[in-house]
């Protein structure tokens, strides 16, 4: 297949430049295989197959209602939490099907983290406790371990310096952008392999948006990131490859620069030139 070939060669060049061992490039960290997702009778995702390369940022773009969020939520088994929702197909996480009958969705979600469109911290918990919440759920109660992970997660989320003196307080006075980074820290604390971000900056001002994008780029070293966005500039700025969806189908999936400069599909071209959507 031509698409995966170009992806592959680009990844190889990249890997050479960054001295990443080859196996890591070849393996998709997480791969959707023939995913169909439904809300009752609404067929929201239609036969999508898509691999997300390890240590890369993959953007998913498309007009509102095309199924981006739904696809994303199939990757950590959040979709099935909606009453009446249903998924068909397979999702391979490190080669293992997360929809296999003996798989515990809770365990999946500990390995595939998620950041939402609007910051959703737990309002009754302090800044510290929010970040520690995931670890505590995993049975970690050793104060030193918690301290350590909370600090590391907040540093990774580029928030440590701003909150290190007020960890015990509520985060109510943090700005929208800070709250979003706070939620990213909470997701990072359980050390997921994959981080799903559903329009993480769409409720933020441009400066905060840039900060989140910068953050996503640094996180790529340790994580596989899937970024749903409405904002094509954002996809172009931060992602390594981009998937374009339309009406629940995957239209085109290629390295970002190629998708934006030489789209193969007419519909992709129409979308990125702003002719619809």
């Amino acid at each position: 297949m031509e698409i995966s070939n170009t992806l592959f060669s680009r990844a190889l060049i990249d890997a050479a430049a960054r001295a990443i061992p080859l196996e890591q490039v070849v393996a998709d960290q997480i791969r959707a295989v023939q995913i169909n997702a439904y809300y009752g009778r609404t067929h929201a995702v239609r036969g999508v197959s898509l691999g997300f390369a390890a240590n890369r940022i993959t953007a998913v773009i498309g007009p509102s209602g095309c199924g981006k969020s739904t696809l994303l939520r199939c990757l950590n088994r959040m979709h099935e939490l909606v009453p009446g929702a249903r998924v068909e197909g397979r999702v391979l996480l490190d080669g293992e099907d997360i929809y296999a009958p003996d798989v515990d969705p809770v365990a999946v979600r500990r390995r595939v983290g998620m950041v939402f469109q609007r910051a959703n911290p737990f309002p009754t918990m302090s800044i510290y406790d929010n970040v520690a919440a995931g670890l505590r759920l995993n049975g970690v109660h050793d104060r030193r371990v918690l301290d350590d992970v909370v600090e590391r997660s907040l540093r990774q989320a580029a928030l440590w310096d701003e909150v290190k003196d007020v960890l015990g307080r509520s985060g109510a006075s943090l700005s929208g952008g800070q709250q979003q980074r706070w939620c990213i820290a909470r997701a990072l604390a359980v050390q997921p392999e994959v981080l799903l971000m559903d329009e993480p900056a769409s409720a933020l001002d441009p400066a905060s948006t840039l900060k989140i994008e910068e953050l996503a780029r640094t996180l790529r070293d340790n994580l596989t990131i899937v970024l749903v966005t409405h904002n094509m500039q954002q996809a172009a700025r931060v992602s390594d490859s981009t998937a374009f969806m339309l009406s629940g189908e995957l239209v085109e999936f290629r390295p970002t620069t190629e998708l934006f400069t030489r789209p193969k599909d007419q519909r992709t071209e129409d979308y990125i030139t702003g002719r619809f959507g």
Binding site: N76, M78, L81, V106, A107, R109, R110, G113, M114, F116, R118, N120, P121, F122, A133, G134, L137, N138, C183, R186, A187, A189, V190
Partner: peptide, 13 residues
């Protein structure tokens, strides 16, 4: 809000 529930599910609750 659903977002609160989702926040907990997403960290493996």
């Amino acid at each position: 809000p659903v977002t609160q529930r989702e926040a907990a599910y997403a960290i493996g609750a």
